[in-house]
Amino acid sequence: MGDSHPAILLNSLTKVYRRSHLGRVRTTLGVEQLSLTVEKGEVFGLLGLNGSGKTTTIKLILGLLFPTEGTVDVWGLRMPHPAAKTKMGYLPEMPYFYRYLSAREVLRFYGNVSGLPSETMGPRIESVLKTVRMTDHAHRPMREYSKGMLQRIGLAQAMLHDPEILIFDEPVTGLDPLGLKEMRELIQSLNAQGKTVFFSSHSISEVEKVCHRVGILVKGRLQRVISQSEWSQTAGGLEGLFVDVVTSAGPMEVR
């Protein structure tokens, strides 16, 4: 797991979903021939319309889905490699937790499963709870939490084991303006600590503010990777480039 390897390397990644019903097999394309390199310390945004393959890509990186073709390497380790998983933190689009446990119990549980040493567990839990401003509510069962509070605990569990790579699926969806600002600041702070951040989003304005590079997915294909310097020098900014890429890829299908 050395620095010579990119943080994430996707090589000709293809995912085809097969669903069979009464003997009939239906296939749907998730992503196709997706190749991408995310370097250490980079903030990379994955943009795309609904059904473009953003969540599929993230699940393939995390090992929740298995590729039909191609490979995923994290720090040079072929996923789903346990050593690579210790270096990754994941925030799902809508984090779900065990209703009967309190936030502290949930974090201790995830800490144990992540292999966090017992002596650092307590201070680490308190530190992430403080970061997401949930210390005062951490004793309550999670069934009593609001959506915003669940999102905060979602972030806390993603950062708990101090991972090198943070993968967020639509982290700004449904956040109020204050929440958006906090999320932006958190991503920038994590990046300042040398962390690699990979996230998907619909929000071009937010992606534009924090990312070094952006990949645009259209119908499961990575159409273009754009760097910050490119969109900052373009009149229409990232939004203009995104619209150009999506429209030039042909009419959208309902997927």
């Binding site: 995390l62 090992g63 929740l64 346990p82 050593a83 998983k85 210790t86 990754m88 994941y90 799902p92 809508m94 984090p95 779900y96 937790f97 065990y98 995830y110 499963v113 992540s114 292999g115 569990q157």
Partner: peptide, 14 residues
């Protein structure tokens, strides 16, 4: 169904 499993299986848990 509740997807709580996502957060477990993305950790180094066989």
């Amino acid at each position: 169904e509740s997807k709580t499993i996502y957060l477990l299986l993305t950790r180094p848990l066989p």
